[in-house]
Amino acid sequence: MDKGNSTLTLKRTAGTFRPLALTPSEDLKGYILAHLGRAVLFLIACTSVIAIFLIFLFVIRESVGFLQTESLWGYLSKTGWYPQAEPAKFGSVAIIAGSLYVTAASLAFAVPIGILAAAFLSDIVSFRIRAVVKPVIELLAAIPSVAYGFFAVLILAPFLQKKFGFPTGTNALNASIILAVMALPTIISVAEDSISALGRELREASYSLGATRMETMFKVVIPAAHSGIIAAVVLGMMRAIGETMVVWMASGNAAQIPHPWWDISQSVRTMTATIAGEMGETPKDTSHYYALFMMGVLLLVLTFSLNIVSEYFLSRAKKATGRA
């Protein structure tokens, strides 16, 4: 070390500075490189934004054709979906209802389970168990949806049919259960993050007033983490509403509104399954083709607004924990 230092001082005579100003060519080179780099990185960052923009543009453009022959009001208010009939009928109410139906039913399963699991993971189990269990739960999200679909058709459907005597095993209940399992990792993960982000202070306050763990969880922690929990639910909802393969395989695909409405054992059809199932055999630029794109627009608007809602609650959750 010492020796290296001394050679350095020997080479450079004391009192001489390295040149501190750039030469004109160095200056130009730096300028070009910096700006070129920025431009390239900016373009790369923009690709996903541009892609989303183009998708919106394309889907909307293709759906506009529908409005030239049919009315939007009829589309949104009638139930009959007979694209092959003469004349064709495009009433999408039953299909939209089907989407909302399985989404709501799957959330009815997934939300209580998800919140309880999140509470359990954040406050009850030891850190070591959580470190194992949470990644495993998140792994559920990595299973391809077609594998869930297989499970729904080959195992769950016969089971439901035998156990409860349903006329068909591929129905709203089957799809809802599978969707619930698929939404769970999102719900648990996001809710657990917001619950454990709350910190010790509030819990200690509650314990010091004589509250049990249960009381602390339900009266203080979950209410205080409600923003993050709502965001978790909305994200789970997006997952359920946008899911295609599972509902296509498991829901039975009958474009009907269950009657009576609470009979979850009937088959339904969702928007996503309709698009996926019919798009392949629909000639381009027919009214059926346009009608499917119209459905795509509806779906986009739905998920886009859900996304905004979840962003809002996530930012609120961040603010809340930042303050506390």
Partner: peptide, 8 residues
């Protein structure tokens, strides 16, 4: 406690 910790 050290830091005021009212419930929200």
């Amino acid at each position: 406690f050290q830091k005021p910790n009212p419930f929200p």
